[in-house]
Design a protein around this nucleic acid. Structure first.
Lengths: 225, 225
DNA sequence: CTGTATCCACTTTGATACTG
DNA sequence: CAGTATCAAAGTGGATACAG
C-alpha cells in the first residue's frame, strides 16, 4: 500500500490509495469498460503484469473493484465505490485537457490510440458486415507504422499485422496529428483541409469514415480562452 | 518530476504531475487559502521543508501556482490552472468522505484538527473582543493534549501552550470523537448528548460554542445509504 | 488467459541540521 | 520567515522468465 499521510482529511485518505503510480489509470480503464486482466493491460502497456496484479489486489482490498470469477472468466468489476470514482477521473481528464495540451514524443503511442479508438466506434455508423480500416503513420518506425481495425456489427479488433481482408479506407497522418484530432485539440475538418490527416478509399466511404469514430471522452471539453 | 506514463490521455498527463506524494495535499492547502511557506507547512506537517520546497517548485513549473514576492513577503498563489484543480480536490474529498470512513490512530493529529478549525471559524458568531477556546483530549499524550484557539474579530491563532488569557469555554473529548464531528461523521448534538464531546463554561457560551465553528468542507457530503 | 516469482537499479522520502 | 544541504533507508518500479 501507499504509505500513509497521517491525516484524517478525506482528500488525504483518498490519495493514500489513489496517488500511487498507475492506480488511477487502471480505474480509468475500468471506467472505460475494461474488465479482463489482459484487456486492462492493453490500456496500460508500460506496466509490468506483476505491478498490474499488485494494483488490482490493492483496488480489491480497498473496495473499489471486485474480482469476479465466472466460469473460466476472471473479471475485475468496479464496485459502487469504484463507480463513484468516475467523477474524479472526469475532473482530472477535463483539467488535463485544458491545461496540459503539450505532448512529448514519448506520449504518442499508436498502440494506445488504436486501443482507445476501437472502444469508441460508432457501430451504427459503420457499414454492415466487416469493415477494415487501415492506419498509416509515416513518421513512426516501421514496426508500429501500420495498423488495422477490423470492425463488425458489434465488435472491433486492433491488428498490428495485415489481417488480409479488403481495406475499406486508409487513414494516413502523422501520429501526432491523429492524436490531436482524437483528443479534440484539432478538428477533423481542419485536419483534413490542411492535409495533416488524409483519408483514402472510395469517395462515399472516405467521406463517411471520420464519422465512424466517436472521439475521446474529453474531446468536447472547452479549452481555456 | 514524476516519471511519465507515455500516454497522451489527459488523465495520465494530469496524474504525471498530481500523483506524486503530497502534491495534491499542497494544492488542497492552497485551495483552502494558505499562501506562505510556513503556513503551508502547518497543513502538511509530516513533510520535510526540503520536499515541500521541491513540490512548490514543481507546481510553479507546471503552471499551477505562482511564486509572488511582495515586499518581504513570499506568497504562493494558485494560477487559473491551479484554481481549476478545486473540482478535483472536491471530487476526491467527497469520495474519501463517502468511502473511507475508517481512520487509523495515526490519522488523528490534533495539530491538524486545530489548524483546520482555526480556518473555519465563523467570526460573526463568536463574541466581540478576544475569545479563548480550550481543547482537551484526555486520550492523547501530555505533549499534545491541550490546545487553545485565540479568536479575535478577524483572526485566530492556534496555541499549544496556555496563552494566559481567560478561557471562555473548554471542549473535552477524545480526539477521535472531535475529529468525527469535524468530518461530519457524527453530529454535534449526538456527540454532546452521548457525552463523547463535552463543553464547559458559562451556560450561554457553552450553548453557543459549537456554532462558532463551521465544520469541514466535506462534512455535508451525503453518506452512502 | 491470468497471472506469480525474482531480482536489482533507481528514486524517493524522511530526518536532521543549518543558512540568508 | 523562507528555505537549502546532506545522507542513509526504504520502497518502488521495470524487466524477464515462468506457471497453473
Amino acid at each position: 500500500m501507499g504509505s500513509t499521510y497521517g491525516q484524517f482529511c478525506p482528500v488525504a485518505k483518498a490519495m493514500e490509495l489513489l496517488d500511487e503510480r498507475w492506480t488511477l489509470l487502471i480505474v480509468r480503464e475500468m471506467v472505460a469498460g475494461s474488465r479482463r486482466f489482459n484487456e486492462l493491460r492493453r490500456g496500460v502497456p508500460r506496466m509490468s503484469p506483476t505491478l498490474l496484479s499488485k494494483r488490482l489486489h490493492q483496488l480489491v482490498r480497498a473496495g473499489v473493484a471486485e474480482k469476479r470469477i465466472e466460469g473460466k472468466d476472471v473479471l475485475y468489476v468496479l464496485t459502487p465505490a469504484g463507480e463513484e470514482l468516475r467523477p474524479v477521473v472526469e475532473a482530472l481528464g477535463a483539467w488535463g485537457t485544458r491545461w496540459i495540451g503539450e505532448l512529448g514524443e514519448e506520449d504518442l503511442d499508436p498502440k494506445l490510440l488504436l486501443w482507445d479508438m476501437h472502444r469508441r466506434i460508432d457501430h451504427g455508423a459503420v457499414p454492415e458486415g466487416r469493415t477494415v480500416v487501415q492506419f498509416e503513420f509515416p513518421d513512426v518506425p516501421a514496426q508500429t507504422r501500420r495498423w488495422w481495425l477490423v470492425i463488425t456489427s458489434d465488435d472491433a479488433d486492433v491488428c498490428d499485422a495485415d489481417p488480409g481482408y479488403d481495406v475499406a479506407v486508409t487513414f494516413t497522418a502523422s501520429l501526432r496529428s491523429l492524436i490531436r484530432v482524437w483528443r479534440g485539440d484539432l478538428g477533423w475538418s481542419d485536419a483534413l483541409r490542411a492535409g495533416s490527416v488524409k483519408v483514402n478509399g472510395p469517395e462515399a466511404l472516405r467521406r463517411a469514415a471520420p464519422g465512424w469514430f466517436t472521439l475521446s471522452t474529453f474531446a468536447p471539453v472547452p479549452r481555456p480562452a
